[in-house]
Lab assay of single mutants.
Amino acid sequence: HNLTITQGKLFFHYNPKLCLSEIHKMEEVSGTKGRQERNDIALKTNGDQASCENELLKFSYIRTSFDKILLRWEPYWPPDFRDLLGFMLFYKEAPYQNVTEFDGQDACGSNSWTVVDIDPPLRSNDPKSQNHPGWLMRGLKPWTQYAIFVKTLVTFSDERRTYGAKSDIIYVQTDATNPSVPLDPISVSNSSSQIILKWKPPSDPNGNITHYLVFWERQAEDSELFELDYCLKGLKLPSRTWSPPFESEDSQKHNQSEYEDSAGECCSCPKTDSQILKELEESSFRKTFEDYLHNVVFVPRKTSSGTGAEDPRPSRKRRSLGDVGNVTVAVPTVAAFPNTSSTSVPTSPEEHRPFEKVVNKESLVISGLRHFTGYRIELQACNQDTPEERCSVAAYVSARTMPEAKADDIVGPVTHEIFENNVVHLMWQEPKEPNGLIVLYEVSYRRYGDEELHLCVSRKHFALERGCRLRGLSPGNYSVRIRATSLAGNGSWTEPTYFYVTDYLDVPSNIA
């Protein structure tokens, strides 16, 4: 807008934040220059609390790290170098490059900038070799853009010569660093050979998330399962459950009422301010606690030095998902009996873990797994792929695949051998790939016309006998059925096997 004052003059007093240069501009645009008398524009009460600059400061050096910015700028000295009290560095987070010096300023003089007072450097006698002032900004957020400017702080001049310097606002972004852990990993099994893994992005990506790394490792069953005799009275049979499938998407929606109208769909109840505040506090606490764990609990591995020492970490090797089922080394339970199943799973520490690289999504279907087997899954978020990966501390989750139908069934015939004193040795093959492992066998036998009897055969007993022995049988026709019990439950009964026990007292003698 054009402003013209045809008559009258300007009068400025007691404006401590208004620089004289701005008042002189007002004289020019209003056409009143030359009308004012000496005392109409006070030299001592206008701009006496402001830094009124008329020179431009330029930054000469900028260096960044993930949490620091090192700045240096060209030296500046007023005509009387004693008038320079120091520099004021202003900075704040700036997602967009549209910041002005006066953003967030209120009537009390406060604003949204963080201000650092910096002492002037030592003055050199040689004007050509003056030290460049600077400042190291610490405690910054990774991968965050900051708006920065600097200006001088000078003393009051009796001659009211307006001098000083100020830089333009520059924008500097800190470097990326390792992201925080992925949030809320959930693993479920939808079949006997697959596990579905879902997660949420890290709360602090500290860069642009480029991919996720998912490692999985087959877990050995508890050692007590191999040692305890679950045929003993009072000892509860062990059981394991597989990871249940995901709930429906509708039930997972946030901010939804727990109660549904019987007449149909209901609208979600909005969260109160107290609920939102509580969630923010919980989120802040979780982030602080995660940072504490990362800094205190997890110790970084030592990389190899120039002395030739090897990095103890196993090298990563990509495998196809079809090879995942046989990740671990199978060892027989008892070496003397080769027909026992290889369900003991000690994992070799030198073995390469299978892994998958996930790009542009937060889910993965891990296939080719062994049925009813526990897996430990390790999830890392990465925001750099080359020249070397920059990934987060791992988040861990466990899951067990679903049982395989008929995996616990005894394959092959049940054979028998009759000894003296009416002892019958029953023999059968253990299931080759049971659900988890076989903890015991149930032997059901009966003599024709009598009630059915049951015998429990422990895992250890089966390994020693290759089956079991029935003792003290009365003469007669017998039928026997056997079924295995694994961590997933009972298998199917075998087809009945028949044998006849004679009275050993009636056996004919070869003595003449």
Rank of each mutant, 00 (worst) to 15 (best):
E279L: 15
H454P: 04
Q219M: 06
S262L: 10
S283R: 12
M402S: 15
V358S: 07
C266L: 07
H461Y: 12
S243K: 03
F372R: 04
D503N: 13
S251Y: 06
N208H: 05
N255I: 08
Y375H: 06
D311C: 04
P413G: 15
S509H: 01
E356R: 10
V414Y: 01
D450H: 13
V329Q: 07
K287G: 08
N360A: 11
S363M: 03
N383M: 12
S320Q: 08
G412R: 12
Q252A: 09
P332Y: 04
S248R: 10
E465T: 11
V327L: 11
T340Q: 05
F226H: 13
T485A: 12
A463Q: 09
G467N: 02
A263L: 11
R471V: 15
Y448K: 14
F285E: 15
T307S: 10
K278L: 05
I366K: 04
V424S: 01
N206A: 14
H294T: 03
T210H: 13
G449H: 01
Y259Q: 11
F226C: 09
Y478H: 08
R483E: 01
F337W: 10
E389V: 08
K287A: 05
V397I: 01
P354A: 08
S223T: 08
L321N: 13
C266M: 05
L228N: 08
F298E: 08
F337Q: 11
E389L: 10
S363P: 06
T386M: 03
F462Y: 03
F226E: 11
S363C: 13
A381R: 03
E350R: 15
P244S: 13
H371R: 13
E224I: 04
I366H: 01
D311G: 11
E310S: 13
F226Y: 10
S248C: 15
S257R: 07
S268V: 11
S268I: 11
V414K: 01
V393Q: 02
P312Y: 13
R319S: 11
P508L: 07
D385R: 07
N435C: 02
S251N: 09
V424E: 02
I418S: 10
L453V: 08
T328L: 11
T272K: 02
S223E: 14
Y500Q: 05
E224M: 15
A484V: 05
R240A: 02
S315F: 12
E420D: 11
S458Y: 09
Y498F: 08
L364M: 09
Q380D: 10
S268F: 03
L455R: 08
V507Q: 15
T401A: 03
G306E: 09
E249H: 07
D385F: 10
S344D: 03
L487P: 06
E249C: 10
V501H: 03
R469A: 03
S479N: 02
N383V: 09
N360C: 15
E430S: 14
S274T: 09
I209M: 12
N421P: 15
A484Q: 02
C267K: 09
T386Y: 02
E217T: 12
V365W: 04
V331N: 10
F499G: 00
N255G: 11
G412H: 05
K460R: 07
S474M: 07
S509Q: 10
A336N: 09
L440K: 05
L505S: 09
E362Y: 14
L369H: 01
Y396R: 08
G306T: 12
Q219N: 08
